[in-house]
Simulated assay, not measured.
Amino acid sequence: MKIDQISLYRLKMPLKYPFETSFGRLMFKDFNVVGVHSGGQVGYAESTSLPYPVYNEETTGTVSYMLKEFLIPRLFSKQDIVHPQEVDELFSPIRRNNMAKAVLEGAVWDLYSKQNGISLARALGGKKNEIEVGVSIGIEASIDEVMAKVEKFVADGYKKIKVKIKPGFDVELIKAIRKRFGMDIPLMADANSAYTLKDIDLLKELDQYGLMMIEQPLAYDDIIEHATLQKQLQTPICLDESIHSAEDAQKAIELGSCKIINIKVGRVGGLTEAIKIHDICQQNNIPVWCGGMLEAGIGRAHNIALSSLANFTIPGDTSESNRYWEMDIINPEVAFKEPGKLCVPESSGIGYEVNEEALTKYLVEETVIKNDQVLQS
């Protein structure tokens, strides 16, 4: 394929409800959407960066800058792209900036799938026709408020309940959920790097509650101390922020730093690298699941496609569109086929159409680039 044009959209979408983690409180999603044009067709992807550098070093602004100044010119330098994996190789000399790389590479994957008349899931090697999904519950003002959400989402049929924890809002929360709902609901805790090895005794208290996993309890860039902690815990550790590449995953597995890995496309630099991590984990009997970054519909569609790969055996965070948005940017919106399950689209590309009305409604800035020249901004 020869890339004719790149469209960049910066959107700002209000969340239906505030979402809080140990990083802070989000009231809206400020993010980039990329459209890659070739031969009259367009592939789309969505950046997972946040407006400020608290999950990783990237922001909505830095992603936009990297796309315009470095990544799009490199993509235009390639006269013909046979397969999206070539984009991963093309971007490899540029250090990190994984979310910026991922959104452009993801749009090429969607375009490639459309041009070949196959679904993105099949292009990635996925075989599943449906996936099970979970839901993520942020930190609330009280345990009772979390409990009310757990009750609702269990009733809705979600196959995994993830609750955010932080120091002072952890053991008592998990204890209360287990007391109210029993040991049978699939429950995990996400710490978002809020603890240190000084908290081993506290974290060991969670062992008695039969959690599926505790996600990223220690530093965002650590795999060494997580190995020390995993030896002390019965509960499986899942690594998130620490894993940026297949090499990171291999090292973490060899060190015994975790028993599960969360794969986020933006964090690892794109779908090509995500597949590599999936394959390494599968070879080492480490289950994976697809984490969420409060994606709108385009990003959600990419996550569904990725989750169709065989080793995604744990329900991911890809909940329905109406969990977060009054109006999503795709048609149809992401909705259950039955409680806790989503269909993997069979039509070409991501399997959803862009909702132009919503795109216009949430649009903050649009830039069109062709042959390294800004045509409209």
Rank of each mutant, 00 (worst) to 15 (best):
residue 5 Q to V: 00
residue 6 I to R: 04
residue 6 I to G: 05
residue 8 L to Y: 10
residue 8 L to D: 11
residue 21 T to L: 03
residue 23 F to M: 11
residue 25 R to H: 03
residue 26 L to N: 11
residue 30 D to H: 13
residue 31 F to H: 14
residue 33 V to N: 04
residue 33 V to P: 07
residue 37 H to N: 12
residue 38 S to D: 07
residue 39 G to F: 05
residue 39 G to R: 12
residue 41 Q to I: 09
residue 42 V to C: 13
residue 48 T to H: 09
residue 51 P to M: 11
residue 52 Y to P: 00
residue 52 Y to Q: 13
residue 57 E to A: 15
residue 62 T to K: 09
residue 65 Y to G: 00
residue 67 L to Q: 08
residue 72 I to P: 07
residue 74 R to D: 14
residue 76 F to W: 04
residue 78 K to R: 13
residue 79 Q to T: 08
residue 81 I to E: 02
residue 82 V to M: 08
residue 87 V to F: 06
residue 91 F to R: 01
residue 91 F to K: 02
residue 91 F to A: 05
residue 98 N to I: 00
residue 100 A to C: 09
residue 104 L to G: 11
residue 105 E to R: 08
residue 106 G to K: 05
residue 109 W to P: 04
residue 109 W to R: 03
residue 110 D to E: 07
residue 113 S to R: 05
residue 126 G to L: 10
residue 126 G to T: 12
residue 130 E to C: 10
residue 133 V to I: 15
residue 138 G to Q: 04
residue 138 G to M: 06
residue 140 E to C: 10
residue 142 S to N: 07
residue 143 I to S: 03
residue 149 K to E: 13
residue 149 K to I: 00
residue 149 K to P: 01
residue 149 K to S: 02
residue 150 V to N: 02
residue 152 K to H: 07
residue 153 F to H: 13
residue 154 V to C: 05
residue 155 A to F: 09
residue 155 A to I: 00
residue 161 I to N: 03
residue 162 K to T: 07
residue 165 I to L: 01
residue 166 K to C: 06
residue 168 G to D: 06
residue 170 D to V: 02
residue 174 I to S: 03
residue 175 K to A: 13
residue 182 G to N: 03
residue 185 I to P: 05
residue 186 P to K: 13
residue 187 L to H: 10
residue 188 M to H: 11
residue 189 A to R: 02
residue 194 A to F: 11
residue 198 K to R: 13
residue 203 L to K: 09
residue 203 L to D: 05
residue 206 L to S: 04
residue 206 L to R: 05
residue 221 D to C: 03
residue 223 I to F: 05
residue 225 E to K: 12
residue 225 E to F: 08
residue 225 E to R: 13
residue 227 A to R: 10
residue 238 C to K: 02
residue 239 L to T: 04
residue 242 S to V: 08
residue 243 I to Q: 10
residue 244 H to F: 15
residue 247 E to L: 12
residue 253 I to W: 10
residue 254 E to G: 01
residue 254 E to I: 11
residue 255 L to Y: 13
residue 257 S to C: 06
residue 257 S to W: 03
residue 259 K to R: 15
residue 259 K to C: 03
residue 260 I to V: 15
residue 261 I to L: 15
residue 262 N to F: 10
residue 262 N to H: 10
residue 264 K to P: 04
residue 266 G to H: 12
residue 270 G to F: 10
residue 272 T to F: 12
residue 272 T to P: 01
residue 275 I to K: 15
residue 278 H to M: 02
residue 285 N to K: 13
residue 288 V to F: 07
residue 293 M to D: 06
residue 295 E to I: 02
residue 298 I to G: 01
residue 299 G to K: 08
residue 307 S to F: 10
residue 312 F to K: 04
residue 316 G to F: 11
residue 318 T to Y: 00
residue 321 S to V: 00
residue 322 N to S: 12
residue 325 W to L: 01
residue 334 V to A: 01
residue 336 F to A: 09
residue 337 K to A: 14
residue 339 P to H: 12
residue 343 C to T: 12
residue 344 V to N: 11
residue 344 V to I: 14
residue 345 P to F: 09
residue 351 G to D: 11
residue 354 V to S: 00
residue 355 N to H: 04
residue 365 E to Q: 15
residue 367 T to F: 09
residue 368 V to L: 13
residue 370 K to I: 02
residue 371 N to K: 14
